[in-house]
Amino acid sequence: MKRLRSVRVRLLVLGLFPLVALLAPLLARERTTDPSVLARLVTPVPFDPNATDLDARFRPPDAEHLLGTDDLGRDVLSRLVHGARVSVGVGLAAAALAFFAGTLLGSAAGAFGPRADRAVLFATGVVQAFPALVLVAAGAALAPPSPFTAAILIALTGWPEVARLVRAEALRLSASPHVEAARAAGASRRRVLFVHVFPGAISPALATVPYILGGAVLLEASLSFLGLGAPPPPPPGDEPWPMPARA
């Protein structure tokens, strides 16, 4: 029962983010002239995320700016709400892609015999031994940085972990008595894969999803830092290789 409640809390939090992200343009925008309570309720964050005010930089949180303002005097909460759109979007897309590709290839490797297994092992091996930094930097140089590129790059680095977990589990399952029994009973390969192996193999991989998602958001935050490289002469007055603003 306790466990169920904690799952529910997690689901609620997980669900809230996409909702906020989805509704960002409504929730956080420049307040119209209407100062009524209703307007405040409909638009709880009455600031455009990009509205700058150089005379209101680094404001501490107060009733007006609930989370204060940033280095350009922009409302931090409004930027968070809008920023969630990109981060959550990229994270979800990347995690979904990685999970889909990983489980499919992983269980195929486990269920379709040695040749498929070797092919998948080869692919995961290559990707896992591939320095992520090279992939990200070269990717950013080849395709201009965008949320779409970021999602693809993150999924590319993320899927082998899922695939390996699923494969290991699938191997164990396909050697297990009930799968052997199913095979003996003449079940087709597809049936073995989807009915007997896949459902069981997914569960260890599911545990990694939050990590892919979290890792995706982190990596997305560092992408600007990692992916853009360093100018040899720093701009006047700046340090070379500055850290991302608030990653």
């Binding site: 700058t52 280095d71 830092f225 490289g229 100018p231 701009p235 500055p242 603003a245």
Partner: peptide, 17 residues
């Protein structure tokens, strides 16, 4: 722009607006 300098990015964003 080819640098991740915070300040440079901020100036560009201000100019853009």
């Amino acid at each position: 722009y080819g640098s991740a300098s915070d300040r440079q990015r901020q100036i560009i964003e201000l100019a853009q607006r």
